[in-house]
Every structure is written in structure tokens, then in C-alpha cells.
Design a protein around this nucleic acid. Structure first.
Lengths: 161, 161
DNA sequence: TATTGTTATACTCTATAACTATA
DNA sequence: TATAGTTATAGAGTATAACAATA
């Protein structure tokens, strides 16, 4: 996939100020954009899961049967916060706890059949805020978002300072 | 500027499942990425401003002297939420209230000299979470982020359903 | 004694409902 | 009566500190 910066016939109207910036200004703009988009997204509960819950559930599916601590680190929250998220997902039947046979202090979790179903529904939600907006974008910009998403995922996944 | 989706020598290890998705899956992945990145970012208060405050301050600077209602709509929050953000920014001396001469119900706000200084400091914060991470990216990916940030800004700015 | 997770508590951000001031 | 904003109150998400269980 190959894209260009402003390929939609000039519909991306960056001002000179925006397009001729340094890395720190790019960081500031990206921060604002992420914050604002997050505010839009948080108003939509997708498939009965809050953003924190669907994010954690997706991480569990990806990691297999992580410990609570590993999951908290992966989601960049503190253990007490993850305790609550897990409790909610467990009560809904979307994940189960597994007692670690070698160390009974650790709490491992794994996704259930129901949990996987919900996750799939979540991934294919055609009526979500973002899905509807992506359809309003020109095809080439939509494709470029695929590349951007990979970068965002990596930025969010990088370790702490 | 031209980029490719995985230009970092294969360091972007998207699975086949991730790279061969439809728009709805892209939406789901983008949603998760934005949520996670937001969680990373919210832990860093930049220049003494919370994310909500710096976002609102930037909007005021962009809009000129908006009414509280217009600012709330621009930031996708309800008027009571904006009342609090404005009160905090006003107390810090970063914006002032202007009585609308034609309608004394409306509360207009404008950025102060101090506010503009803080905003500039914010934009050039070299030690922010994102700024440091952007420096870890290959140059071509960093450049692509500049173009794609514009897309995120537009997604966040689109009107409600 | 160190580590893993939980409970208790508090703070930030945001929302809805009810209210005030002005039109 | 309608509109712009504020105050009162509540809920979601997360944090730190103190605790319990296990190593």
C-alpha cells in the first residue's frame, strides 16, 4: 500500500503553519487529535462494552492467558484498575480466571467462547462512530488510515520512559 | 511525501488477520489504538494543563472569541463540562471572558497573552511522551504521521450522526 | 522479606437535570 | 416562552495507599 500526504484533491486543508512544523509540534497536534477523537469515541458504547473493557478483552485474546499484572502493563493501567475491568468482564461471562499451578498468587485470565463472540461482533460493528465516518472518506485516505493505525498501535505499545 | 504501510524493515508485525480486513475491522482497530494512546497520554500533564484544558485553549485560539456553547460543540462536550474547563483556564489567567454587547446571555472567551505563551510552550514541549516516542520512529514513518494526523483531526471534527 | 493481587478511598472528566438570567 | 449558561449531583475510569495471600 502506498499513499501520499494530501491525495484527496486538496480536501485535506492543512495550513502552512500545520504542514511546516517540527517534531514537537507534530507531537502536540497528534496529542490533541487523539484526545479529541477519544472524546468522540467514549460516547459510544460498542456492543455493551465500555472502551476499557473491549480494549482489555482484545488484549486477553491476543496474549492468551496473561496474568493480571501483565494485562495491566499491556493496557497501561495500574493493577487495581485492571482488577475492576476484569471483574466486570468476568461477571458478563466474557473471560474466566485460571489458577496458575506454579504460583497461586497470580491471577491469570482467558477469553471465553462468549467473549470471543462479542469481540468479533465488536470488530464488525458497521454502525460505530468510526465505521460510519470512515465510509465518508475518499478511498485512498481510508487506505492510508490503515497504515496510520499500525503506527498508532506501535506508539501506544512502546514502553514507558 | 510517499510512504508505505510497513516501511520499518518488517518491524510492524501485523498479522494476516490485521492486514486483510474490511473497513469495520479497521474502525475497530483504530478505535482501540486511539483509546490506548489516550490512556498513555492522559498520564502526562503537559505544561500544567490537563488534556481537556489544552485542547479547549487551542480551540479558543483557533476560533477567536467563541461563545461557550460554540466551544463546547467544537470540543464535543456538553455546556456544563465546558463551564468548568473555562473556569479553570480563566483562574490560571489563560483566557478572559467577554460580554457580548448584543446579547448578554452569551459568554464569549478569548485567549490572553499568557494563554498564548502557554500554548506555544505546549506545542514545543520536547519532553512530552509523544515527542520522545516520535524520535524513536524511522524518519519516513515520522513524516507519514504528519500527513495522517490531519486525517485524525478531520475524523474528530466531523459532525455528529 | 518480596511479590501479586484486592480493597478502600479519592480525584478528574464528563453527563443529565434543575435553575437563573436574558431575550 | 425560548435560549445561554451555571449549579447540583451522579457515574465512569483511573490512581495511590493500605492490606491479604503466597512465595
Amino acid at each position: 500500500m502506498t499513499i501520499t500526504a494530501r491525495s484527496a484533491g486538496g480536501s485535506v486543508d492543512a495550513t502552512p503553519h500545520e504542514s511546516e512544523q517540527g517534531d514537537t509540534e507534530l507531537a502536540a497536534r497528534l496529542r490533541l487529535a487523539v484526545n479529541r477523537l477519544h472524546r468522540r469515541l467514549r460516547q459510544q458504547a460498542v456492543g455493551g462494552l465500555t472502551p476499557s473493557q473491549s480494549s482489555a478483552l482484545a488484549s486477553v485474546a491476543k496474549l492468551g492467558s496473561p496474568t493480571l499484572g501483565a494485562l495491566a502493563a499491556s493496557e497501561a493501567v495500574q493493577p487495581p484498575s485492571m482488577t475492576r475491568v476484569i471483574a466486570a468482564l468476568e461477571e458478563m461471562g466474557y473471560l474466566t480466571r485460571i489458577v496458575d499451578p506454579t504460583d497461586r498468587r497470580v491471577a491469570r485470565v482467558a477469553i471465553t467462547e462468549q467473549g470471543r463472540t462479542v469481540l468479533d461482533l465488536n470488530r464488525s460493528a458497521k454502525n460505530s462512530y468510526l465505521a460510519e465516518r470512515l465510509l465518508q472518506l475518499p478511498v485512498d485516505e481510508r487506505e492510508s488510515l490503515g497504515a496510520l493505525t499500525v503506527l498508532l498501535e506501535r506508539l501506544a505499545a512502546l514502553d514507558e520512559p
